[in-house]
Amino acid sequence: MTATLPLSAGIGLRHPHYRQVLAQQPPLGWIELHSENFFDGGQPLAMLQQLAARYPLSLHGVGLGLGAAARPDATHLAALRRLLDAVPAVAVSEHLSFNHDASQRFANDLLPLPYTRAMLEVVAANVAEAQDVLGRPLLIENLSSYLAYPGNDMHEGEFLAGLVARTGCGILLDVNNLYVNQQNLGTDVDAFLAALPADAIGEIHLAGYTERSFDDGSRLLVDTHSRPVYPAVWQLYRQIIACFGVRPTLIEWDIDIPPLDTLLAEAATAQAILDQHTGAAA
């Protein structure tokens, strides 16, 4: 295992609930927060340090864009390193996505990358560079994508496996993203999962999507993190836990954030599934 998060359910903690969680300290296996919201210092960093004193902490980045053909932004990496020096994080993760080019033009989003042999070498160098600066391995998350590079010569699961082999990084397996890709792009879920080195999967994400329809009659599932986890995603999660064994599992909710109790109930559902497999798993 790459990470040492507890083998239990946690929640993605967002601004509306920081103070409530600190005050009530609900029983949660662990929490995950977005790294970029705590860069530098001040009240956000002080709050994060208080939270890290009470819960195992995972820091989840959205801004490095390690899947770019261009190198990662050195100032961003340095800021992340300072954050890791200031806060005891158990796990640090980023996405298999890109957000910039060599002229430092950014789209603050998680954009899909070509899954080719040439790109794999570039991204492996980016991940290795980031891990060198940060002084620790990263968990890299599979992406929800709405389009694909036309010249792909492997699928995302093979690409992730290649990254693990080249850099020693771990995998953050987002089950909702996988489901969304299956629905939008026809991703072969079984082939994706079969390609993953099970030992490298250090964390699982669960979230809800939104369905959008377009004038031309097409529809897309958009990975909005704005809804409860859908039944089909729970079903896929059960299969994955049955196959790979229990993993630290996170409920993510970033838009239209509900009361804390709703998040805790979602986490309890994930915990119940983990409990069914605890002891039975490798």
Binding site: A69, H100, L111, P114, M119, V122, Y149, G151
Partner: peptide, 16 residues
Amino acid sequence: MNETAWQHALLDAITT
């Protein structure tokens, strides 16, 4: 690398 050009074009298409 074609991949670089594709990423560049996607950024163009998104930000323009």
